[in-house]
Amino acid sequence: MKRPAKKVATDRSFVVALARGLDVLRAFRPNDGLLGNQEIAARTGLPKPTISRLTYTLCKLGYLTQVPRFEKYQLAPAAMAIGYAALANLGVRHLSEPFRDELMRQTGGAVAIGGRDRFSMIYFGQSRSSMTVGVQLDVGSRVPIATTAMGRAYIWALPDDERAALLRELREHYGSRWSKLKDGIERAGEMVAKHGFAISVGEWQHDVHAAGVALRLNDGTGPYAFNCGAPAFRFSEELLINDIGPRLLAMVRNIEAALGATAVPLDTRTITNKKSKTGGKLAREVEEI
């Protein structure tokens, strides 16, 4: 888990202690169960003595519950209440549900909506059936921005300056892996420009294929992103491009209309899809990060 950037040290309005406490809560993931101080320290990158003080404080405030028998902690109802309150306020989650369910029935894929959490997309709505047993994700699950269809669609829905900042952070985060990842992000940008959606063909998990489409509302929230995925043997790359992707794009456009949203498409005037990876504005934008 990435700690706050060094520049916040000079930001007098930034409360480091609060940020660290929230990092501790972020360390807990769906299906984790119990975590000890050492595990939390490893996930947050914070010193164990600091973690001990933070978990003690969070227990006193009711956000964590200690299980003395195992000397570990679990999220308490007060922490879960924050998450449920956030979900309740996400109108797009509720409005999109019948659209997601219909696309799930049409395609047999799992259909989800998510928003960004640092270098991940976190699911806050999910429609799946017995046909999607190979995609074991649910509300609260995180998937990486850089390698998933949902994440890549999100990246290319950002304003230029925000996307450039995120790409710089991703380069720092992934280090030597960045060269390969940026190629996938670049290809996704070309696909969004040409088709309106991104795909991931075994690039996150080798046996999962998916398409992704971004949604940006005119109230300034988001962007959010949807995906439709299934085991690789069910969704071939050809099917993603010719059927699943267009269906997902149509679904998102219908949701935009229902919400009174304004689509913010990628500016295709600056991209020529016939250019090679080393040519064109898009390629240079990612290459320079």
Rank of each mutant, 00 (worst) to 15 (best):
E256T: 00
G109K: 00
S127P: 11
P265Y: 11
K194E: 14
Y174R: 12
R12D: 06
G91C: 01
L103V: 05
L259G: 05
V286D: 02
P68W: 13
E102F: 05
R253T: 12
G114Q: 03
T65Q: 14
R69P: 00
G115R: 07
T55D: 03
R269Q: 09
A9E: 10
R20D: 07
Y73S: 06
D32E: 05
R100E: 08
T107L: 06
P49Q: 07
Y56V: 02
R216F: 09
L87V: 02
E169H: 09
I244N: 02
D117R: 04
L266R: 13
S276A: 08
E186Y: 09
P30N: 06
P231E: 05
E172S: 12
I271V: 06
K277A: 03
G184F: 11
H209A: 08
L248P: 07
R105Q: 14
A250S: 15
G212Q: 07
V143A: 09
L90D: 09
G202Y: 03
R3V: 10
I199L: 09
A193Y: 04
E237T: 13
R118D: 10
L35T: 05
N37K: 11
E162S: 10
Y63R: 04
P68R: 08
S127V: 06
S236F: 02
A5L: 10
F226G: 08
T44I: 04
S176N: 11
R53C: 02
S236G: 15
